[in-house]
Design a protein around this nucleic acid. Structure first.
Length: 353
DNA sequence: AATTCGTGGTA
DNA sequence: TTACCAAGAAT
């Protein structure tokens, strides 16, 4: 039996989460706010997003404000949230929407915008424009795999899960409330149908959940084993001047941490660097003070960095090759998390460790 | 189609 | 501590 959308919507009426980007019941949400939140929430927890969301809305109240901003300002505000291609695409998308005059209101047209894929297009279409579509995110995949007891492992089962999820909103009740239905699925996945220890006893869809009936709900969705994460090594140099500015450069637009700022240093290789080889990449001759090491886990590799630092005497900051960057205040730099860790090592007293 | 993209929280 | 996980997109 197909789960009854009315049961979920009734549950949502009393259990919906209050979130900054959500409009009050019955009120039409601001498409800009919906879009901004959806981009930030990609692979990112609600808790991490909230502060960034508020900051962006404060600096850029409208999509036109965001479109008019320099990209470096956008990356600075995004710094620390991760997946920086999202920030670059966010900016590009804002410019496009400003040209169009407004956000497209169909899945087809939303898909044409940078940073908007199959999920986000449907999320915006349903939540902001009331289109009767089901956005399939990790929550919906989990709920769907349990409802229908789909044991095929992800990611191969992704197409099947999307197909099954699309069956959930066929009732007239769901068709009439696309925004609530989509967000009800999110909230069910986030608070009841959780990855570990789901609260099946209080689930509005428990009677029709095949996974629960078979006692395998908590084991779904199954996932293909992931391959091991390799380790890479690098060395970075934090060079301060007497005005407490730091030598920094901007990474290339594409690829890892694209467009973000960093302290000069070596490439990140599979083998550790010897001190002699690393010093060949230093912006100045020694002596450098070894301030410690940083371990940072990216999605597909673990990075181990050695961090050297020193303060340049007044009048000695000329003649440094521009490829190492320029002296700037770190408070205005778009520093990713890993570089903030390096900076913390350089400015912290050695007594801690 | 499989990789490449961050970061912080949790068990 | 390691491993997994979170409102995925681009290539």
């Amino acid at each position: 039996m197909t789960p009854d959308a009315s049961d979920l919507l009734r549950w949502y009426d009393t259990h919906r989460r209050t979130l900054p980007w959500r409009s009050l019941p019955g009120q039409r949400p601001n498409p800009y706010a919906v879009w901004l939140s959806e981009i930030m929430l990609q692979q990112t927890t609600v808790k991490a997003v909230i502060a960034y969301y508020e900051r962006f809305l404060t600096h850029y109240p409208t999509v036109q404000d965001l479109a008019a901003a320099p990209q470096e300002d956008v990356l600075y505000l995004w710094a620390g949230l991760g997946y920086y291609a999202r920030a670059r695409n966010l900016h590009a998308c804002a410019k496009r929407v400003a040209e169009l005059g407004q956000f497209p209101d169909t899945v087809e047209d939303l898909l044409k915008l940078p940073g908007i894929g199959a999920y986000t297009a449907r999320a915006i279409a349903a939540i902001a424009f009331g289109r009767p579509v089901v956005p399939v995110d990790g929550n919906v995949e989990r709920v769907t795999s349990r409802l229908f007891a789909i044991e095929n492992p992800l990611p191969a089962s992704r197409l099947l899960l999307a197909k099954q999820a699309a069956l959930l909103n066929q009732s007239a009740e769901a068709q009439d409330h696309p925004s609530d239905f989509a967000q009800a699925l999110f909230d069910l996945g986030a608070t009841i149908c959780t990855p570990r220890n789901p609260s099946c006893l209080t689930c509005p869809w428990r009677p029709s959940c095949l996974g629960h009936a078979r006692g395998i709900a908590s084991t779904l969705p199954r996932k293909a084993p992931k391959q091991a994460r390799p380790t890479r090594y690098g060395v970075h140099f934090i060079l301060l001047d007497t005005s407490e500015r730091v030598l920094m450069r901007t990474r290339p637009e594409k690829g890892l941490l694209g467009g973000m700022d960093e302290f000069p240093g070596t490439e990140w290789h599979e083998a550790p660097w010897t001190e002699a080889d690393a010093m060949h990449h230093a912006p100045t001759l020694g002596p450098w003070s070894l301030r410690g090491d940083v371990t940072h886990v990216f999605t597909h590799f673990t990075l181990k960095l050695m961090v050297y630092a020193k303060t340049l005497p007044a009048g000695h900051n000329a003649g440094i090759d521009p490829s190492f960057g320029a002296f700037r205040s770190t408070t205005r730099a778009a520093l990713p998390g890993v570089m903030k860790k390096c900076l913390a090592l350089a400015v912290t007293d050695m007594e801690k460790k």
